[in-house]
């Protein structure tokens, strides 16, 4: 929703006997202080905790901060709430629940309660299920893209990478990118600047 539309909604609400909860939460979101965590829109607290745990095993903290510190979960919440269509949203949330189901089956606990090594075991299984799709064999399946995009772990991994490397932490600390580069060169030593184009 555009700022202008929110203001219009609020202006309308002022003449009502009370401010609707929707308008109020929008108002709060609009005036959220930078650094303050915005309210989650799509994920419930458990789903959010699962997303944080998954993302932080995909991109853990090393010498540089990981996905949790980069607040990748907040980005994923925005995507699930305002970018995915209903079908994608349901499928993503069902995928999260499925992670717990598999975790329960393997270890008798929800994913967030597992030790990191146990979490990694489950991630290895989920990532391994994509092996054929990552490395399409000769005459690869035409439905590859479709299968990949409908796979929960593929989505989760792709969103984690986007959320992380487009965060200020990922961009500056991990990739050493700068918006205005120090100079231009066609072939500079790796490490002098950012990777890729």
């Amino acid at each position: 929703m555009e700022r202008r539309e929110v203001l219009k909604l609020l202006a309308g609400a002022a003449s009502l006997p009370f401010l609707s909860p929707e308008a109020f939460s929008l108002f709060q979101a609009m005036h959220a202080q930078p650094g303050k965590n915005p309210a989650l829109q799509a994920l419930n607290p458990h789903q959010n905790a699962t997303v944080i745990a998954l993302s932080d095993r995909i991109i853990p903290s090393t010498k540089t901060p990981g996905a949790k510190a980069a607040k990748v979960n907040q980005f994923i919440d925005v995507i699930v709430a305002d970018w995915y269509d209903e079908e994608e949203k349901e499928s993503f949330l069902a995928g999260l629940a499925e992670v717990d189901a598999r975790s329960q089956k393997l270890f008798g606990k929800d994913f967030v309660q597992l030790a990191p090594a146990q979490q990694d075991k489950l991630l290895t299984v989920m990532d391994g299920e994509l092996a054929d799709l990552y490395h399409p064999p000769a005459g690869y399946r035409k439905d590859r893209v479709n299968l990949l995009e409908n796979n929960f772990f593929f989505r989760m991994k792709a969103l984690t990478l986007t959320g992380y490397y487009t965060s200020q932490v990922g961009f500056e600390q991990e990739l050493h990118e700068s918006i205005i580069p120090p100079r231009h060169a066609g072939c500079a030593p790796v490490g002098e600047g950012a990777p890729g184009e």
Partner: peptide, 23 residues
């Protein structure tokens, strides 16, 4: 760049280190 990671097997510290370098 890092975008290749979505189509590359792996996760975790080594994966992150590899993606931090150009492909």
């Amino acid at each position: 760049g890092w975008q290749r990671g979505a189509n590359t097997p792996g996760f975790g510290a080594d994966f992150k280190q590899a993606l931090g370098r150009p492909g």
